[in-house]
Design a protein around this nucleic acid. Structure first.
Lengths: 215, 215
DNA sequence: GTCTTAGTCCGTACAGTGTACGTTGTCAAG
DNA sequence: CTTGACAACGTACACTGTACGGACTAAGAC
């Protein structure tokens, strides 16, 4: 009746989370339901609850798995370089899993994210920054990484599945008057022209430079 | 049978959105459903759909209403001061409506938000910044405002309704080893000690200063 | 061997969600 | 008085998360 039980991967937390991540990568977290997840794994819904408390825990485990993908900083590197590398690597992980940035802040940090925090804070503590500035820096860098990624991916949320993002942006600027909103149109146009390449690292360096100047 | 129809406010977009905002302010957006919203207004669910396309439109109108609360910058002020004021006022609006920051990036900008963008971009264009730097600045400031507010309110998402945030933070640091994660514990402890007051404006100024130094 | 115990899988069921559709009431223009 | 519009409503459907209880299996105790 059911598919050969031999073919399906045995059910445990790791398998569930891995499958959930793959599903979210393909269809987004909004489309992720416990039923679809179970179907994807070849099991029935309620079987998942033998390994996982509830959906919230699945989501929590998912972001922690993403955090686990972020490589720890090279201990031999300069402290500031470590902070910078951690920021860049974190951003890359969030780009790899576009749903992760939106979840990052809503989940209590799991073990991997606590490790991530520790690396980040340790690198900052090893710089010349005073403790209060290091505290500030932690949040400033975090804000930049997550906020920038979120903003970049905001379009993906708005654009209907497999819709044309550029076309949507063009229809957006077509809908507003060039007389009252000229700067807005120019701004969106700059995005369409694509000459806003790697501003992420540029602003990151700006923030880091500013922080190291503080005391 | 039904409550006196005279007492209930007549149904239109504005009434629906106002009620939705009040409800979200009190119970959060997760608890907001079309049925509860209708009940709050004294109507039945489907009546809402005579005035609103779907729930997504309600959410979209809600964030635009928040954007409309943000006062336009004083045209007599210095451009940089306008940018700064806009950032601070935006943050205040997002704090007034804690659900708004999370929705801000997921909704296509409505008229009020386009106006907000225009003010922001116009003020930046009036500074000494070159156009590419002004473009950068728009995103950098936006990231800071939204990211900072989101991060600040992340706790509110994690803490169960009317739960003790401090107690949860303490149980969090109790759960991690001081030997492997000393910096993390120290960081959370600093939050509990509350000596991290108005870092928002501090980092904002840091970013603005850095941007004005660029060219 | 049998009995017990723990753990996994699954079927059923329930309350709650967004919303499509059709019916009813109301009120103004012709 | 009729007609047509629009707003309010009731019902219905597909879908969500998950509580509960039963069926089955595997391991260990005697």
């Amino acid at each position: 009746m059911s598919a050969a039980p031999n073919e399906r991967r045995s059910l445990d937390r790791a398998a569930i989370v891995a499958c959930a991540i793959a599903f979210a990568d393909n269809h987004g977290t909004d489309a992720l339901s416990m039923r679809k997840l179970a179907a994807e794994l070849g099991y029935e819904v309620m079987s998942l609850y033998n390994h996982v408390a509830n959906k919230a825990e699945v989501l929590s485990l998912m972001v922690d798995a993403v955090a686990a993908e972020i490589p720890p900083p090279d201990p031999a590197a300069e402290p500031i370089a470590s902070v910078r590398a951690l920021a860049v690597d974190t951003r890359e992980a969030l780009v790899r899993h576009p749903w992760a940035a939106g979840l990052w802040l809503r989940q209590m940090p799991g073990p991997a994210r606590v490790g991530h925090m520790e690396h980040h804070l340790a690198a900052l503590a090893a710089t010349d920054m005073t403790p209060p500035v290091a505290h500030l820096a932690f949040h400033a860098v975090n804000n930049h990484v997550i906020g920038y990624t979120l903003q970049e991916q905001a379009m993906a949320y708005v654009v209907p599945p497999d819709g044309d993002a550029d076309a949507l942006a063009r229809s957006f600027i077509d809908g507003i008057s060039p007389d009252v909103h000229p700067h807005t149109i120019a701004h969106v146009q700059q995005h369409l022209d694509g000459d806003t390449a790697s501003s992420f690292e540029l602003v990151l360096d700006l923030i880091l430079d500013g922080l190291t100047r503080l005391d």
